[in-house]
Design a protein around this nucleic acid. Sequence first.
DNA 1: CGATAAATTTAGGCATGCCGAAAAAATTGT
DNA 2: ACAATTTTTTCGGCATGCCTAAATTTATCG
Lengths: 243, 243
Amino acid sequence: MPPNKHSPALSSGSASVQDYVKVIYSFTEWQDEPISSSQLANRLGVANSSVSEMVRKLVELGLAIHEPYSAVELSDEGRRLALAMVRRHRLLETFLVQELDYAWDEVHDEAELLEHTVSDTFIERLSAKLGYPHRDPHGDPIPDAHGAVDIPQAHQLAILDAGHTGRITRISDSNPALLRFLSAEDIGLDDHVEVIGRKPFGGPVAVRVGTAGRDRELDLGDEAASALWVFSDKPHAGCALAT
Amino acid sequence: MPPNKHSPALSSGSASVQDYVKVIYSFTEWQDEPISSSQLANRLGVANSSVSEMVRKLVELGLAIHEPYSAVELSDEGRRLALAMVRRHRLLETFLVQELDYAWDEVHDEAELLEHTVSDTFIERLSAKLGYPHRDPHGDPIPDAHGAVDIPQAHQLAILDAGHTGRITRISDSNPALLRFLSAEDIGLDDHVEVIGRKPFGGPVAVRVGTAGRDRELDLGDEAASALWVFSDKPHAGCALAT
DNA sequence: CGATAAATTTAGGCATGCCGAAAAAATTGT
DNA sequence: ACAATTTTTTCGGCATGCCTAAATTTATCG
Ligand SMILES: [Mn+2]
Ligand SMILES: [Mn+2]
Ligand SMILES: [Mn+2]
Ligand SMILES: [Mn+2]
């Protein structure tokens, strides 16, 4: 039987290949612009020249689509691989928090390595043990075993206008120190938030945070407000989402 | 503060380096002869020339001791690293069996990769979660976090004389098919065994296996009898252990 | 002892994935 | 439009860890 189009195999590629497709995929997870060569280099912490070479290889492998001097996109097979890696990463993070008592700011680096090493069997057993979770500790959606994933309709707190209310659906995990700050302020996933107002010129955003009676007001700087993604309670007049 | 002699750091080396020291260590775990270059190559599945090169590197790194054309041994630091790797490997196998429902013949390959990837934190949390186990699923002893390990006084069933009785303390995990055979025959760790007799010229060994009333007799081939390590019930006359 | 055989090391190469420097293409500003 | 700047690619090299083939050393046997 020759290899066929419907092969589930996916032949996962090296750890480097896996990280490249994962970064290419992640760049468009919450926004639409495809990633440029230098942005890719930046996120991976490698030189631009390394990206040029590896992108050529990804194209040869049928994982990426690339016109020279333009942005890098994934092929269907590349997206499948990326989703499989994202699934691995997020299930591993969930495991580390739920079973090994890691704090949510400690899991990213460990998952970044383990995702390349565990077997499919390991991942599926882990998913079962954890109760088939759909979100990781930071609220990022976990694709299912077939690569299906639904990205919640969420918006960065930083772009919401005064009066807007909703729940925190996702917290960017790219900065561990920020995660620790949020823990210290007792801000977490699914907390209710209301935008009270904002200072002009990129100043802090005043918000009311907290479920039920125990809520408090505080000012959040731009980096914090950009890391918090909010699922709106209801369509609300005067918000910046009409675009 | 300069690096000092009592540094616990150990700077673990590459995955290859880790596998080399682990194999060098393991060769002398149940017996005393140090490993030769070609035996090392055999166990690692690499060419002899690759071993020559890597052994030179291990010596440079202060992990191994080696006179050209003679056997390879570990330095104290090499042994520390090896014990840390053995600990990792065996804790991971234990985790896979106890928490992820792997069969005992499925865990070796997965652990062989994961051992190089998990962090010290991961391993210590895992050890705690598993209740600080001292044996892996095959009965191999798990060194503690400081590298202390006690190797039980056990002997291969294949070398025991008729009349000898004891408990199965360890089952070599190097052949998954053999492990499946033993499962099918319902032979497992801590089972009681009695050597009934043996056919000459490397023929099968007749044994009685099983705890309490439910015991049975069967013949074991040389490979099976060599994989089973027995802790003797009591010193027994007429056994081959006097050497 | 010497000749063969076996084990080990050395020499020359290959694949992967990275780098810095230089060249080429695209973008920007006037 | 075109010169300056930025982005991207190409080029030559390096480090790891592996290989085969060819020495070289050690072991074995008549
Ligand atoms: Mn990774
Ligand atoms: Mn995450
Ligand atoms: Mn290994
Ligand atoms: Mn084992």
